[in-house]
């Protein structure tokens, strides 16, 4: 069946089987390999993408369900320069091996859209569906908060 999506702002189409998982559609059919496959059982969150702005685990959704919807993957964060969440992960050493990072950044981005100044607990709660096998959670929490501060400064700068 034909699946049409808008991914990172671009319209893309591919012909897939009904059972094709969204994550494989993104990685194989659309050749966007920034979205990773980890546990493949809805536990680890490395395959997290934003579906119409909301984080979902793309290993637990069929590609046909995304037909007509908007998807954002890690590749869509950078717009000329690094997105503040990417810059903050770099700055705060929010990644070690980097495998969980795309999911962590997208979940962090979605959190910051609701709350630019999250507490430690709020960040930990928001990323609790995403696992970091390097156990680098301290710096992931810091990075998301740093990005929030950055975005909030940019916002008040824009209104000033």
């Amino acid at each position: 069946m034909e699946v049409n999506v808008t991914i990172n702002g671009a319209a893309r189409t591919a012909e897939v089987e009904a059972r094709t998982l969204l994550v494989d559609f993104i990685r194989t059919n659309l050749s966007l390999t920034g979205t990773h496959i980890g546990c493949d059982t809805t536990s680890c969150g490395v395959c997290t993408v934003l579906l119409d702005g909301t984080p979902v685990k793309s290993c637990t959704m069929f590609a046909f369900q995304a037909d007509g919807h908007e998807i954002q993957t890690v590749e869509g964060l950078k717009n000329g320069e690094l997105h503040p969440i990417q810059a903050a992960f770099k700055e705060e050493h929010g990644l070690q091996c980097g495998f969980c990072t795309p999911g962590m950044m997208l979940v962090g981005k979605a959190l910051l859209e609701e709350n630019l100044n999250p507490t430690d607990d709020e960040v930990r709660w928001a990323i609790s569906g995403n696992l970091c096998r390097c156990t680098g959670y301290m710096n992931i929490v810091k990075a998301i908060q740093t990005a929030g501060a950055e975005l909030s400064a940019a916002e008040s700068g824009a209104t000033a």
């Binding site: 809805t42 909301t54 685990k57 979940v107 928001a126 609790s128």
Partner: peptide
């Protein structure tokens, strides 16, 4: 119930 990302779906 589940985790925050699963709860979205």
């Amino acid at each position: 119930v589940a985790d925050p990302v699963v709860r979205n779906r």
